[in-house]
């Protein structure tokens, strides 16, 4: 084992890079395919639009990547996101001067709820599937109950203009949202690849017991990772409100499946320990490109749903084949 470990490490790195490339190549191929079936699809404007939509999936997928890297999963995404969106509009009332507090409050809410998930996993030994599932229900009940089913007066508020600008404003020909996503990609990749916290994350995902014995604070890291996942769900909720203007019920629902799909397409190993956020981000881009191509082909909803599933299965089978070479 020790003899081949450095060679193995290099191979593994190569494989992770390769998967990221696969996901990016898939996105590029889909744009070419889109251009064929629907001329003008691969224009700069449409590329920009697709990437903007992909960025929301990508942000949620950042949180999902963190928890999947330690073999967990976050099913509480939909209602943390939805609750965050509603909390932002009700606390800011669409006013710029209230916006900083509202954004801080919303992000703190997301991180706090995520932290509760983490505490349940780390200290109560509740399986991640169960605690995040229950937390999703808790957030759904609280969001619906406190907002009276989105009938409260403040619920109809728009996102503060400053938040809308943070998504829509054009900087050097691209919307600010894309720069924001780029920043998140750089920061998350740095944290995972270059910091002690990142190395601990991979170590726990590879072997929990060995990490514990090596003196890594497994519980602290776990709680932090789930808190980060909640934080990113809340961030996506804030930006989605900025994108669409108003909050709605059920706006978080698609992001659970899509974030997990992006993570899988991006080559993050679902049992933890391997994968990168760049892969997941590329996965989000290719997933959104796929949806856009299907939309351009006037594919009905059910067809999209079927193709979604088939694509994920095919990728799983391709990656799974590599896995067994190990």
């Amino acid at each position: 084992m020790a003899r081949g470990s450095s060679a193995l490490a290099r191979l593994r790195l190569g494989r992770d890079r390769r998967r990221t490339l696969y996901a990016l190549a898939a996105a590029a191929m889909l744009f070419v395919l889109g251009e064929i079936v629907h001329p003008g699809f691969a224009s700069l404007d449409s590329l920009e639009a697709v990437l903007t939509v992909a960025s929301f999936v990508g942000l949620v997928a950042a949180g999902q990547t963190f928890v999947v890297l330690i073999g967990g999963i976050d099913l509480s995404v939909p209602w943390i996101l939805n609750g965050a969106a509603i909390l932002l509009v009700t606390s800011s009332l669409g006013q710029n001067e209230r916006a900083p507090y509202a954004v801080a409050l919303t992000l703190a809410m997301g991180a706090g709820v995520g932290m509760l998930n983490g505490l349940g996993v780390a200290f109560l030994d509740v399986p991640a599937v169960v605690i995040t599932l229950a937390m999703n229900g808790i957030m759904e009940g609280l969001t619906l109950g406190l907002s009276g089913g989105l009938t409260c007066q403040a619920c109809a508020s728009y996102a503060p203009p400053i938040v809308q600008q943070a998504v829509h404003r054009q900087i050097l020909g691209a919307p600010a949202e894309l720069y924001l996503w780029l920043a998140v990609i750089i920061i998350v990749s740095f944290v995972l690849g270059r910091t002690r916290f990142g190395r601990h994350t991979y170590a726990i995902g590879n072997n929990l017991r060995a990490s514990y014995l090596a003196g890594i604070s497994v519980r602290f890291t776990t709680v932090m990772l789930y808190a980060l996942s909640g934080l990113f769900s809340a961030l996506a909720g804030i930006l989605l409100v900025g994108f669409g203007g108003q909050a709605s019920l059920g706006m978080g629902a698609p992001y659970l499946f899509q974030s997990i799909a992006a993570v899988v397409i991006g080559g993050v190993y679902i049992l933890g320990g391997r994968g990168s956020y760049i892969g997941a981000a590329a996965g989000a881009a290719s997933l959104t490109a796929l949806v856009s191509v299907l939309l351009a082909m006037n594919m009905p909803d059910y067809g999209r749903s079927i193709i979604y599933g088939v694509v994920i299965l095919v990728l799983l089978l391709l990656y799974g084949r590599e896995e067994s070479e190990r």
């Binding site: 899988v264 059910y302 599933g309 088939v310 994920i312 799983l316 067994s324």
Partner: peptide, 17 residues
């Protein structure tokens, strides 16, 4: 030899469609 969670998540999407 695929992970049950992702496999059945994918087939869920197919069956719903």
């Amino acid at each position: 030899r695929l992970q049950p969670i992702v496999v059945t998540l994918a087939t869920l999407s197919i069956f719903q469609g």
